[in-house]
Nucleic acid binder design. Structure first.
Lengths: 249, 249
DNA sequence: CCCAAAGTTTAGCCTAGGCTAAACTTGCTT
DNA sequence: AAGCAAGTTTAGCCTAGGCTAAACTTTGGG
């Protein structure tokens, strides 16, 4: 953060659109946003975030993660108990959710409006999320009709910072014969996404588990009118919702 | 070093097509792209780029500009004659035009598709231009029908790196009574753009110079059916094209 | 024709965010 | 209960890109 000439770039919060933010937010750097987002995701996925997982998630050396964690803790974005792990503060969680909202709205916009393929959209959003203004993100959200899910089925946090992050079952958890609706898959793995698109397994689609081979073997699924077999690792990555069966009275 | 302003340049279309190895472009940082763009703009506007102008354009200290200029020269993006100034190499010009293309396509897209106001679009594009992939930019270009001008009338370089940067007259250059078509204004000054929008002076609009007060005084313009007075500094910033009068045979 | 002002570069410093190697904790397994 | 492996932190270094202050060129006026 360069401290420079007494540059008066005062933007009087009077004119223009209602973007006036009275608090002079320090504007987080891209790495800072990435760390906070990664820590948030580790907390929701694993319940806790430790240094090595953070380092893995961001593909940096553990020592680098320690260094950034120290800075973020000093700035009040997280609490750090040395050797034990890290916990987002309210400020940290707010910042993380803001970044995640941007990411998911960008993914939605690029997919729906610009026809961006769903296996490539993650990387693009990963860069744009640090550059787009709030005003632009909200414009995109409005253009999309304020969506609540991104193209991979992930819930989009509201601008106020609430998100419906309920736990889900995966296809691997289904009972044989059980039907379910595909709701979500991670946006990280492009080749997985390409394969899912190929077999028409996308959010909203109905799946039924037909058979499950023993010893962690392959699963047979019915997707629409097709049957096919998938490995247990794929099945474990695809989140589903139980289908609301029509209530018999 | 006295080379006049280049009018339009084409990349030499790499004669030996298949021979050159597909060099993995090192991916320029945002500051590097900003310097190259600024130097390009100084070269086309003033014919030459000197350290202090570069520093001014980027709002950094002259010593900082010297430092970056040294790095860019070492990487082959420009030639630097100490104390005399700087000149883009072909590689530098290509990189600059790529950034300018992104900037102008982003401005066009944000304005036409997302209804972004034309006085705010510059700052947004300034950040996005460093984050958007080529694939995204080309998608936007296609969605817009491959525009050749941005919302402020600036020509959009092609993906191959050619641009039609012909010199223009300004309203201040018009003869009294002369009619002309507004074609372009800088995207930098938001308050100027807001005012121009207010008086309906936008690219494509016809203007006529009615009177000019002496001693660099105000000018009376006719815009559509309205007449109004503007200062000479505004008039000097608005570029126009002579109107093609219907040829009398 | 010289010298001072204006402009440019160098020298030295700073911060963010990386890295490796070494030191230190923690906890698991004998 | 001890010791070792795995995980974490510290120490020291690096690069990019800023800054100021000081030294150096260039140039225009007297």
């Amino acid at each position: 953060m360069p401290r420079g000439k007494p540059e008066s770039q005062a933007v009087p919060a009077s004119a223009s659109a209602g973007v006036s933010a009275p608090s002079p937010q320090p504007a987080l750097t891209a790495p800072v946003e990435d760390y906070l987002k990664a820590i948030y995701e580790l907390e929701t996925r694993l319940g806790t975030a430790v240094t090595s997982d953070v380092a893995d998630a961001l593909d940096v050396a553990p020592a680098s993660a320690t260094g950034m964690i120290r800075r973020l803790a000093a700035q009040g974005y997280l609490d750090h108990v040395p050797y034990r792990g890290v916990q987002l503060t309210d400020a940290g969680r707010r910042a993380a959710l803001r970044t995640i909202r941007r990411h998911r709205i960008l993914e939605s916009y690029l997919t729906s409006v610009l026809g961006y393929p769903w296996d490539l959209v993650h990387d693009e959003a990963e860069r744009l999320e640090h550059a787009a203004s709030d005003a632009l993100i909200e414009r995109m959200a409005v253009a999309l009709g304020n969506p609540t899910q991104d193209p991979h089925g992930a819930p989009i946090p509201t601008a106020e910072g609430t998100v419906d992050e309920r736990p889900r079952r995966t296809i691997a958890d289904l009972a044989v014969g059980e039907r379910a609706r595909m709701v979500r898959v991670s946006d990280r793995d492009g080749s997985l996404l390409r394969y899912l698109a190929e077999i028409a397994l996308q959010p909203g689609v109905e799946v039924q588990l037909i058979t499950r081979a023993p010893f962690d073997g392959p699963l047979t699924l019915r997707i629409g009118s097709n049957e096919l077999m998938v490995g247990p690792s794929l099945a474990g990555q695809v989140l589903v919702d139980t289908i609301e069966t029509p209530d018999p009275p």
